[in-house]
Every structure is written in structure tokens, then in C-alpha cells.
Write a protein that binds this DNA or RNA. Structure first.
Length: 228
DNA sequence: GCGACAG
DNA sequence: ATCTTGTCGC
């Protein structure tokens, strides 16, 4: 069995190492990555995809996909332990390491302040931002229906991040510091990587690659040399 | 006790 | 997350 209590204690300990302010040596970043995790073989296999985009052009310059045997079931609040092994595997395969990573999931907007974006950021020691599609914890004021509507996500007296409607008629995104990025910058960087869709480009590409979507397959046709 | 609960 | 087509709404 899994000692969930020990994992929760580990989260509390690691959360103390998360840096919640900007400490980039060079800003703005030159390469921004999007990271996404999915599953195959009825969950037996965990698949991670990382897409590297040049900033500010947002063109895809590299991507890596890693598949490993799944070791943990999905337990709300303990997601990072299930996903980080595959993320690390994909990370090791990268030729070009990014200056900033958008991780699909929460950052410090987590019950014990250690979502997958924060956990992964600590492991690779790179600035990360959590971009999630659903709330995990915290509360926020009703959001206006217009694109751009924003509300702080708060919990127990502190602001954990933002709830931001990136596009009209779409559910909002939950954006928070992962590691080495401030709450204000987390929102700004995501906003700087939008291209008309609900998700920011780094995340959108990572998802397209992991799921082998048509847009990605078409891009592959134009870049044969990029086929792994 | 009851409801909520990233991917 | 994943299984999956068409369909309703702006």
C-alpha cells in the first residue's frame, strides 16, 4: 500500500523550499516550455510530453515524449508523485532546457502548497508556473463572463494565485506560482503566451504532442528533421 | 456527518 | 486522465 500520510508530510516539508518570488537571472526568458502528462494502456503507462517554444515568437523548437510504467494511482492532492517520474524522464531527453515551464496542473494553489508544478520545479530547479483547468482548493469571487475577467484565488487568508478567463465562453484557468516566479509574474507570463485559444501556447503544444492531435501531425510534415 | 476533490 | 459523434450555442 501507499503511505499517504508520509507523502503528505513530505509535501509540507518540500513546500518550505518553494521560492515564491522572481529570481530569473535573465528576463525575459528565451525558451518557455509546456509540460503535459497523460496515460495509456488503461493507466499502466504514464506518458509525459514537454514542448519547447522560443519567446516571444512562440514557435515550437523542440519536443520530447517519455513513457514509463505507472507507479502511483491518482489521489487528489498527491498528483505530483504520480506524474513527476515521467516528467523527469522527458526532461532528461531535452537538448534545449527552458528558462520557464508551464506545467499542466496546480502550483502553490494546493492544500499543502505543493502542486505538481511546484514539486517538479523544485526537482529540476527551474522556474515553473501551474496552469490548471479546475480548482483544487481555495475560493474566488464570481467571474465576469467576458474574456480577461480576473479574480484572486485565496485560501486561509493568503492569495495562492488567480482565476482568469482567458477566452470568452470558456471556463477560466487557475494560474499560480510553481517555483521561482511571483504570483504577479505567473499571470503576466501566461498572458504573454496566448494566441487566441483557451490555453497558452506552451501548454497547448504539449497537449497536442502528447495526444498526437492533427495540428501537431501537420507540423511534423513540415519539419521532418524534428521526428524523434 | 457531508461534500469536494488538479490529472 | 481516458473511452468517443454529433450537436447546441455564440
Amino acid at each position: 500500500m501507499i503511505d499517504t500520510q508520509a507523502l503528505r508530510l513530505e509535501q509540507l516539508q518540500r513546500a518550505g523550499d518553494v521560492i515564491r518570488h522572481d529570481d530569473f537571472l535573465q528576463n525575459p526568458p528565451v525558451f518557455i516550455a509546456g509540460a503535459d502528462v497523460g496515460f495509456e494502456q488503461e493507466g499502466e503507462v504514464t506518458r509525459a510530453a514537454i514542448a519547447i517554444l522560443r519567446y516571444p515568437s512562440l514557435e515550437l523548437v523542440e519536443y520530447q515524449v517519455a513513457r514509463i510504467t505507472t507507479t502511483m494511482p491518482y489521489i487528489p492532492g498527491l498528483l505530483s508523485f504520480r506524474e513527476y517520474p515521467a516528467l523527469l524522464a522527458a526532461w532528461e531527453q531535452l537538448q534545449q532546457k527552458p528558462d520557464l515551464i508551464f506545467v499542466d496542473g496546480h502550483g502553490i494553489s494546493h492544500p499543502r502548497r505543493l502542486g505538481v508544478a511546484s514539486h517538479f520545479g523544485l526537482l529540476v530547479n527551474v522556474p515553473t508556473i501551474g496552469v490548471a483547468k479546475k480548482r483544487l482548493c481555495g475560493t474566488f469571487a464570481p467571474l465576469d463572463s467576458a474574456a480577461g475577467a480576473l479574480a484572486p484565488l485565496e485560501d486561509k487568508g493568503e492569495q495562492l494565485g488567480w482565476v482568469w478567463r482567458s477566452k470568452a465562453r470558456c471556463n477560466p484557468l487557475f494560474i499560480a506560482t510553481g517555483h521561482r516566479v511571483s504570483t504577479a509574474s505567473a499571470l503576466a507570463w501566461v498572458q504573454h503566451c496566448m494566441a487566441g485559444y483557451r490555453l497558452p501556447e506552451p501548454t497547448r503544444w504539449a497537449d497536442a504532442i502528447a495526444s498526437r492531435r492533427p495540428a501537431f501531425l501537420r507540423w511534423l510534415q513540415l519539419h521532418p528533421e524534428m521526428s524523434p
